[in-house]
Design a protein around this nucleic acid. Sequence first.
DNA 1: ACCTGAACACCGTTCAAGT
DNA 2: ACCTGAACACCGTTCAAGT
Lengths: 223, 223
Amino acid sequence: MTQNTEGRRGLDPDVIVKSALAVADTEGLDAVTIRRLAQEHQVTPMALYRHFKDKDDLLQALADRLLADVVLPEADDQPWPDQMRSNLDALLTALRPHPGVAHLTLPRILTSAPGLALAERCLALLVDGGFDIDQAAEVGRQTLCSLVALVAAEPRLDPRTDEDGREDAIAARRAALATLPASRYPNVVAAAGTLSYCENPERYYQIGLDLAVAAMVRTRPRP
Amino acid sequence: MTQNTEGRRGLDPDVIVKSALAVADTEGLDAVTIRRLAQEHQVTPMALYRHFKDKDDLLQALADRLLADVVLPEADDQPWPDQMRSNLDALLTALRPHPGVAHLTLPRILTSAPGLALAERCLALLVDGGFDIDQAAEVGRQTLCSLVALVAAEPRLDPRTDEDGREDAIAARRAALATLPASRYPNVVAAAGTLSYCENPERYYQIGLDLAVAAMVRTRPRP
DNA sequence: ACCTGAACACCGTTCAAGT
DNA sequence: ACCTGAACACCGTTCAAGT
């Protein structure tokens, strides 16, 4: 009442996580430090330990927040591969704005409630598709792992570089591939443009979903 | 001659990388510090900066070393999916002993010579399978990303825990899943055993390869 | 209950200096 | 050319103390 503009008093853990996410998105995960967050909230570093056990606990809360943003589509009567694709797309949509911290969600999928909801839905669809429960578990786990990795590995530049620096960095990356000996790496040289940066993120993730669903469909036990 | 048992004098960068890898494998990536490595080689921390530009440079050298261990099979007249599987298997074989640092290889695949050799081979096989070069680039990149992630995410315990601790940790993990409300997460509960740890790594990676190759085969443009 | 202040045991890295 | 020593600007975290 006295020190904050809002009615809440003291530090709000959700607000800490929110600013941690903002720092991670704009300056990278390395910039997320207890001391930095304390400074932003005009408080002593030790004040954060009243709300989080340690730094890892804070990062888990951050990951859980990302998973909480996953909007699972309602189950319907579409074929299971289409429903699977929708569910996986929901995960990508939640993670894509935060590529620098997306990988933190992987260990939380089987721990947090929203993660479990996603996992449960995927398992149900796989079982529906003909997998036994153990196969479904393995296939589901690996598929989710792949998609999280896809977001984390999306070719991107340091978010701190400005417009001019971006073009230069991309050009440098392309040149590094394009000037390789074409006799030894003909295909890499030919694909230099595509490999040097992510021209079209939509296409990138569309292919990612295509591959994930195709893998499931083709791997499922045929009756 | 005087201070080392071998004829070489001074610090050998390869030896530094070797011990860095040993530390990472036994105590985790966080234990790999400039100061720790300096101490192990009975030298001042600053001595390492004569051989590596900074810590990131050292970790890149570590990643390059992993990729150098990839033994690519000779090209033969088998169908392209079989050859692809052999190549991806070669990557897994090299990375599997080092799950804690496997993710460092991803940005080095298109940078280091052994990484480029692997990428070139994969692209060639995809083009052979009917993909145009841009599709091949996107599919190849995402597939390699998925497999690297698979190694990095292999369910494993902290390598520092002893035998008894391992069993307890696994049991705890399984209990966490098995005691979830079965009404809300029936499939997760049913798969608790499979999801709680990696009972059979061979099966884990076999399914990983199955999914990767199946995705490519089913996604390729049909004539 | 919630936050502060000082301290500890670490980091990566710079600079100037030794040999 | 290669290594040392001291210092700087950071970390996460503990402990005891304040209100």
